[in-house]
């Protein structure tokens, strides 16, 4: 993709496509011959952000590698909705082993390819936040530490969705889940210390770490493409709203992801070798409330009594992100 900023088009690089752009500058998803790594007929809920994120990411990876990829999938929604016997939605070689071992399985795939002299085939491991930040955390860290040639993609929907929306280590404070109910004095999830996997990944000083959301497709594609240009362990953390678990409208999936970024709650950035090298500035800043109020999992913050203390606490998390990742630079300056 060329690096010249697209200035003269009504939708710039924000929309998926742009009939006015040269073919090379168009997003992969705008191409009718895109590969649809995850094809129709899968059983994800209506408006599932994970299904969307996975197709975006893997199509980009296919494009970047001339379709020479193998994917390993942890147990979770993505796995279940894509491969219930007798039908698979994948069109790439794909392996599901267990909930907590995708990074290690991917290491094995990469090792086998290397031993067979087929390192042109690249390996992707993917899983939900539960698989990534909790049960597969050790395996992931091991994969990072060895710098195995694997791109790990976490589809973060902030809970164990496949088992019915239980809390995970990535569930945000105050969110209600099936195991952090909206009852008691402090309804919803506790304000813990958080478990910021992108930063943990950075601490391994692996070549490439990035965050992305389904709200910015071009950014996600560019990051996957860039990730594929590195060898070694790489990590991309994609925020994927889940209508079922978050209690949001199925049509609002992308909007909610967008609000997560525009409020600062989900910072979008890139890091190389442990250092942040770029962040996506906020274009239209909103208060966290704009984001929270679209989701039933936060509805206890607004009724029966409004919990300004909690909302402010969440706002302070967003503000901290904004400061930490420098999210309020004027966009025109950053070009």
């Amino acid at each position: 993709m060329s690096s010249t900023p697209i200035k003269f088009y009504q939708v710039g690089s924000f929309a998926i496509g742009n009939r006015l752009l040269p073919a090379d500058d168009r997003s992969i998803q705008s191409d009718p011959s895109r590969t649809n790594a995850l094809n129709s007929g899968h059983r994800a809920c209506q408006g599932c952000g994970e299904a969307l994120g996975a197709r975006y990411a893997l199509d980009a990876a296919m494009r970047a590698t001339n379709e020479q990829i193998i994917a390993v999938n942890a147990t979770g929604c993505l796995e279940v909705f894509s491969t219930p016997y007798p039908e698979s939605s994948w069109r790439i070689p794909w392996l599901h082993s267990l909930f907590g071992n995708a990074p290690a399985v991917a290491t094995g795939v990469a090792a086998a390819l290397k031993a067979q002299g087929k390192s042109d085939i690249r390996v992707i491991a993917q899983g939900g936040d539960g698989a990534t930040v909790d049960i597969g955390f050790g395996a992931l860290s091991g994969m990072f530490e060895r710098n195995d040639d694997v791109l790990y993609i976490c589809y973060d929907n902030e809970a164990y969705m496949n088992t019915g929306v239980q809390r995970s280590g990535a569930t945000p404070p105050a969110a209600r889940t099936a195991t952090t109910q909206a009852v008691g004095e402090n309804p919803g999830n506790v304000f813990g210390q958080g478990k910021n996997l992108p930063r943990i990944a950075m601490a391994h000083e692996i070549p490439y770490v990035a965050t992305a959301t389904v709200a910015d497709l071009r950014d996600l594609e560019a990051k996957v493409t860039k990730a594929m240009s590195f060898r070694g362990a790489r990590y991309i953390h994609v925020l994927v709203p889940c209508p079922l678990g978050w209690g949001s409208q199925s049509c609002d999936t992308i909007k909610i992801a967008r609000l997560a970024t525009q409020s600062g709650l989900f910072p979008v950035f890139e890091a190389e070798n442990g250092e942040v090298v770029a962040s996506t500035p906020i274009r239209k800043r909103v208060d966290v409330e704009e984001y929270l109020k679209l989701q039933v999992r936060y509805s206890h913050l607004f009724a029966p009594t409004r919990r300004d203390d909690v909302i402010n606490h969440l706002q302070s998390i967003a503000d901290k992100n904004i400061a930490r990742y420098n999210l309020l630079i004027d966009e025109s300056e950053s070009i």
Partner: peptide, 27 residues
């Protein structure tokens, strides 16, 4: 001309085509 937002009429930005989680849109 390109500032026009094409109110109410498809201008082929491919958004629908890209954002469908079910690949249910044909370009």
């Amino acid at each position: 001309a390109r500032r026009c937002m094409s109110c109410g009429n498809c201008f082929e930005c491919d958004n629908c085509f890209g954002v469908c989680p079910d690949n249910a849109i044909i370009k």
